[in-house]
Structure formats: structure tokens, C-alpha cells
């Protein structure tokens, strides 16, 4: 068979990538406190048990607050940066954009430790706000990458036409640019929300006594009896992430089709 080896390699690769995640729902519905085969039977009790965990509820509330704030702030910053980088020429543009995008590849633990030192040094109390700041740092490059594609596919003469037809630069932004990049904005909001929701290192270092969902999950692994509940929680998180990312990708593609651009590939 032509390319048989490569096909086999691809299948093994995908299995290693996704098979462990598939174990999550399996054990989430398994009627046993011990995570091992053979399976004991079907139950939904681990899901109902989540309702009786007040610390889980706190973590969920914290995570949602942080994720929503992070999504809004990093998307706003992303709009400004993407607009600037696609429409204007300014000195050292390449270097500035490169530095802004750097957190994408920077070891996150380094950034988290540095931020921790700075916050403690200038006396900012650790809490939800400091986690949000850390998450904005992580998420803004993603927002810029998504939004730059949206702004890039926008024909400059559309703005000029609106300006020519009597609108001001500001009303042109509201009437023409914003509606056309809206799919990109929605896509950016959803992806940064998802990243923030799953993020662990920043939340762990910068949270003080505040716990987010990933930190909660990590802490609960010390107690064997709560592992099945974590499996149930993980199952829900995976479902939520996949749904949000699928919606985000839908909007990203629709936005590019709307402005007549070419799809150059996104994160999905």
C-alpha cells in the first residue's frame, strides 16, 4: 500500500494524542471509586456529586470571572494591536509586534515566576486580578493572531469609500470595519476564554488563596476518593472546550468568507 508506513504513523500519533482523553468519560461513568479496568458498571453519581462540593463551586465561579475578564481585555488589546499592525507603518514595527507575540513561545513558568516577583515586590495582593493580568499576557498574542487575519482580509478601499461618502474615520470604524471583523472578534473572545479557563501555571502562582478549576483539579488528585469526580468534571470541561473552539472556528471562517479573503488556516 502506498504510504502505508506514514498512515500507520499518523494513526499511532492520533491515538497517543486522543486515547487518554477518551478514558476521561469512560471512568466518569464507571461505578467504582478506583480508576482501573475492568469497568464496574454505569453510573452518573460522580456528576451529581459535583453539586455537593462548595470548593468546586468557588473554583468554577473564580474561573468564569477570570476567563470572561481575560477574554474581553485581551480581545480589546488584540483589536488595537491588530488594527495598528495591519493598517499603519511605524518605526520598529516588526520588533514591537515580535515582542508582543513572544509570550506564545515563552516558557510560561518563567513569566509566571517573574510576575509573582514583581507583584510581591510592588505590593499588589495576589488574587483574581493578578491571575487576570497573567492570563491577559498569555491570551493577547492569540487574540492578535486571530484578529490580524480578520483585519488583513479587509480591503482598505472599503474604509476609503465610507470616508469618501461623507463618514468620519470614527463612524467608518463603527459602520464598516467593526461589522466586518465581528466574526474575528467573536472567535477571539471564545478562544481566549477557553485558554484562560484551562490555564494552570499562572493561576497556580498568582492566585494566592484563590483557586481556579485547573488548580482545584490538581489539588483534588491528592485524595483518591475524589478522582472519579475529577473525571466527571474533566469530561464536562473537554466538552465545553471543544464546543467553544468549534464555534470560534465557525466564526473565523465565516468572517474570512464575508470579507472575501482567502482562508490561510487558523488554530483549528
Amino acid at each position: 500500500m502506498k504510504g502505508g508506513w506514514f498512515r500507520g504513523y499518523a494513526i499511532v500519533y492520533l491515538l497517543v494524542l486522543y486515547a487518554p482523553i477518551m478514558l476521561l468519560p469512560i471512568f466518569a461513568f464507571n461505578d467504582s471509586a478506583i480508576v482501573s479496568f475492568p469497568l464496574a458498571g454505569f453510573t452518573t453519581k460522580w456528576f451529581t456529586q459535583m453539586a455537593d462540593e462548595p470548593t468546586l463551586h468557588d473554583a468554577l465561579r473564580n474561573s468564569l470571572f477570570i476567563a470572561v475578564s481575560t477574554a474581553v481585555i485581551s480581545t480589546l488589546l488584540g483589536i488595537l494591536a491588530a488594527r495598528a499592525s495591519t493598517r499603519f507603518v511605524f518605526p520598529a514595527k516588526g520588533a514591537i509586534m515580535g515582542l508582543i507575540m513572544l509570550p506564545l513561545v515563552l516558557p510560561e513558568i518563567i513569566a509566571a515566576v517573574s510576575l509573582l516577583v514583581v507583584f510581591l515586590g510592588i505590593g499588589i495582593p495576589l488574587g483574581l486580578i493578578t491571575i487576570i493580568l497573567g492570563h491577559v499576557l498569555v491570551c493577547t498574542p492569540f487574540a492578535i493572531a486571530i484578529l490580524s487575519a480578520s483585519f488583513q482580509s479587509l480591503d482598505k478601499s472599503l474604509e476609503e469609500a465610507a470616508y469618501d461618502l461623507g463618514e468620519t474615520p470614527l463612524s467608518t470604524f463603527w459602520l464598516i470595519i467593526l461589522p466586518l471583523v465581528m466574526p474575528g472578534i467573536i472567535s477571539s473572545l471564545l478562544i481566549t476564554f477557553t485558554i484562560s479557563l484551562d490555564e494552570f501555571i499562572m493561576a497556580f502562582f498568582l492566585g494566592g488563596t484563590n483557586v481556579t478549576l485547573p488548580v482545584y483539579i490538581f489539588s483534588q488528585f491528592r485524595f483518591p476518593q475524589s478522582v472519579p469526580v475529577i473525571m466527571a468534571l474533566g469530561t464536562l470541561l473537554v466538552l465545553l472546550s471543544i464546543t467553544l473552539l468549534a464555534i470560534a472556528e465557525y466564526f473565523r471562517r465565516r468572517g474570512i468568507a464575508k470579507t472575501g479573503g482567502k482562508n490561510t488556516g487558523g488554530f483549528l
Partner: peptide, 20 residues
């Protein structure tokens, strides 16, 4: 005098029809 205050209007090479 900015473009929006000039008694001129333009037909663009790409037509610049607002797609939305």
C-alpha cells in the same frame, strides 16, 4: 480638506462594495 468634505466621489478599482 478631508475626503468626506470634498465635492468629489470615487469609484474604486475593487469597487469597494460594502459586503455586509
Amino acid at each position: 480638506i478631508p475626503p468626506n468634505k470634498r465635492p468629489t466621489n470615487m469609484v474604486f478599482q475593487s469597487y469597494a462594495i460594502f459586503p455586509h
